[in-house]
Design a protein around this nucleic acid. Structure first.
Lengths: 232, 232
DNA sequence: GGAACTTTGTGACCTTGTGCACAAGCGCGG
DNA sequence: CCGCGCTTGTGCACAAGGTCACAAAGTTCC
């Protein structure tokens, strides 16, 4: 079978769990490259990424055979392959909907641009906010969402509204042609097939921590599981 | 076998994936209760939570047999059982370390208190910020972290610093006796066994979305997987 | 050129999680 | 009291993911 996992379109099929780890490797590799190191072993990369070495090798093997036995991986090449695989070679304009506390913080967040993500638009339902500028960008009204998305080629939508508005906003984003949504609102949002949706929920994270903390026998033996790797 | 999965301490062992979903059920149930509904079926709860009904039933069965066949689950009872299981019956004082954009937003975030989490302290390495008050709370210096944690019985630490400071802060939190950490910094942080660590990373989420978006054949057939349910 | 050493790539196995399907259990109506 | 309809609880089969261990393949040194 030549051992390649391939989907219908002829691309290698990369497991979801692997996809969720690629960005972690990517970041570690960028730092490694910056330090002037040219080659890295799966063992070293595993340490940097906080996973085990076999997992690193298996993950990377989905991208192809870019390692050299006895040596390791060439850092620059890996960076290139991963960024290509993740689609980071292109620009991804992002719209943030809901300019409250969180939306405000996200709009000012450095670390977007570096990875090819760019906040291209800010939208809020409150017309009062349309006057303000946040992080050098004007806030548009919710009604102009579709226009703004079209004009600025926005591909990714971030929902930072209160829970009650989340579904409505998601629907509008989808209508506007957005196919990738990141939801920060504490609400379950559903989208049609073909649209990717991920969620980040502070309250849920805390409640999970609370679960393990309250079970902890206080210096007892039941080890609490460590970080889920996906937020994912 | 009487069918109960039990760990060494005699508690039912609840799978990680289930733990990650309990908060979602919890929120849905609170809303349902608020609407004055007394009873709910697994089917209905599944719809609200965005999962399938069998999963709901299996998840809830780990808590015990609280459903009534032919009827459903009593909402109030479920709310009570889940909140007990998640440890939400007690108060969890939280310290936020790093009062930049994100830390600021988190400090002002409503939705903590409601679920028993309370921002009890704010800490920042920059002494210049120690003057400011954020959300009615004074910002303490990093050096007083241990004192503040001890005085105010803080049990959960949130890292909202730049990546470079994250590990250092984590170490200090652990030294101060914190056993549950939520990391927002874009860095891999390691903690000793017995300490729970979860991470939330905006850039990673976007990169995952980017992966699926760039693979999308643009109205083709390869369906993108929908929201991972855990962010956990 | 060959032996010793290093590191990758992967097959095999195990654990966890998911979904189906159905028997058991409960309430209601007659 | 009995049968019917609805809903839970769970056994089972399968899919996904993780870990181990090792052969294959490369490097280094003599």
């Amino acid at each position: 079978m030549a051992g390649q996992v391939v989907d219908g379109a002829g691309q290698r099929r990369i497991p979801e769990a692997t996809v969720a780890r690629l960005p972690i490797y990517y970041r570690a590799l960028l730092e490694t490259a910056e330090a002037g190191v040219g080659t890295i072993s799966s063992e070293r990369l595993a340490t940097l990424a906080g996973v085990n070495a076999a997992k690193v090798r298996k993950d990377l093997s989905y991208l192809g055979s870019y390692g050299t036995r006895g040596v390791g991986y060439e850092v620059d090449q890996l960076v290139h392959e991963i960024s290509r695989e993740l689609g980071l070679t292109q620009d991804w304009p992002v719209v943030i909907v809901g300019i409250g506390n969180l939306g405000h913080a996200l709009a000012n967040y450095r670390g977007f641009g570096a990875r090819g993500f760019r906040v291209a638009a800010l939208v809020d339902a409150d017309p009062g906010k349309s006057n303000r500028k946040v992080g050098g960008l004007a806030v548009d009204g919710l009604d102009s969402l579709a226009d703004v998305v079209a004009e600025r080629d926005v591909t990714i939508g971030i929902i930072a509204t209160p829970a009650a508005a989340a579904q409505e906003v998601a629907d509008r984003l989808v209508d506007a042609g957005i196919r990738s949504i990141l939801n920060f609102a504490p609400a379950v949002v559903s989208v049609p097939e073909g649209v990717s949706l991920r969620k980040v929920d502070l309250a849920i994270e805390l409640q999970i921590l609370s679960f393990y903390q309250s079970r902890r026998p206080d210096l007892g033996e039941t080890a609490a599981p460590v970080a889920r790797e996906a937020q994912g």
